[in-house]
Design a protein around this nucleic acid. Sequence first.
DNA 1: GCAAAAGTGTTTGGATTACACCCATGC
DNA 2: GCATGGGTGTAATCCAAACACTTTTGC
Lengths: 231, 231
Amino acid sequence: MQNSDLKNFFTYSFSLDCVIFGYQNGKIHVLLIKRSIEPFENYWAIPGDLVYPDEDLPVAAERILYDLTRLKNIELHQAQTFGNPNRHPQGRVITNAYFALIRIDEFQAEASSWAEEVLWVPIDEVPNLAFDHNLIVNSTYELLKQKLTFEPICFDLLPVRFTLNEFQQLYEFAFDQEMDKANFRKKIKYIPLIAHDEKQQNVKHRPAKLFSFNEKLYHEQVKKGIYQFRM
Amino acid sequence: MQNSDLKNFFTYSFSLDCVIFGYQNGKIHVLLIKRSIEPFENYWAIPGDLVYPDEDLPVAAERILYDLTRLKNIELHQAQTFGNPNRHPQGRVITNAYFALIRIDEFQAEASSWAEEVLWVPIDEVPNLAFDHNLIVNSTYELLKQKLTFEPICFDLLPVRFTLNEFQQLYEFAFDQEMDKANFRKKIKYIPLIAHDEKQQNVKHRPAKLFSFNEKLYHEQVKKGIYQFRM
DNA sequence: GCAAAAGTGTTTGGATTACACCCATGC
DNA sequence: GCATGGGTGTAATCCAAACACTTTTGC
């Protein structure tokens, strides 16, 4: 979007910013893009842009993320809204954060449109970002940590088929808590998992059984009120 | 705000809607206002209005609530944002819900500005509302129920000084679960309360001790990571 | 004294923890 | 066979539910 267009677009504007968390090698990363346009040209930022006047928010979030990073088929969740009148130097832009969790190696982010580069940075090494994007990243990270406990988001970070040990490692990372192997398996007894016949390949020890999250059963049980997810 | 003004204000607009939950006689109510202006003239709605171009969101939420209902000194919490392009018949208005929980008898709601009447209705008797306000009320009620468990919001519903029995009754109502008196008292052992010397008055049985929530200690402990509230 | 609710201690069973041990695979 | 991690059973411990009991007030 060019500067001249922007001026007409404003009296108020509304944007969406996507905080994409990526998990790799036991570390949480955030996806950044380098802005090739003013304001904040050459700054790192999270991917975000204005919502079209007739576009619904979830649609816009997907569109914006794809336009800037070529990422698609990612489940985005609504987070907080940020509306400080001075957060955008060119006018009043209220923004709504959306977030997602993905495995970095399962997706291919690629700079596009006015994004000059894309970059995954560890959550504790995020540089100074454009606008109030540091605030947005930090607030959304806090929200993520809360949601990890009560919503089965953690499975977004595991391969579709995973071993119980991979699951446990993720747990220990996410909640920063070591746990006994046998006890972990008792703890997750009530989480609806599908046990596959398939086994781990190319390991030089006894291969582990593969599991996946039984999303269908989970939703059924939640709907019936039988079950509440809790890590 | 007049119709002619509205047209200039729009290309996009941004509003806030306040879902005020009130507790009385073991029932949750919602505060509605009757609109005296178009669109949806004479419809019931939740109090909400456009945000001024240079106004921050929390400030706007307080201002709007006061303008329409004369309620003030209420702690408002941000909830979800609703942005369906067709949610407002006169243009694109994205709205952010704020919510609060109060004891109805401690506040005096009074119609003001373009609110013709105010009304507390039980949450299960909410009529057809203007715009998508039924959706907003329902979504925010779900959010409230979630937050009750993990944030000490329930104390907004108790008198500043309350008996443990009042607390237990609220708990039983909020979570729809009966509980043994002795066990309830063990359960809340870790919630930071202040025990006062003062006692219940004018009861024809042994008067109960009065307590209040130790907000200061709570915030300190959360900050230090010692404590996580959980009901 | 009696009714009513406040307030507390004890027992019990189920869940969590710590820990030990066996199993399957590659080399 | 042995190194490596997968996988499981058991005893000890902790915690929460059930229940019984004592206390304090008004009438």
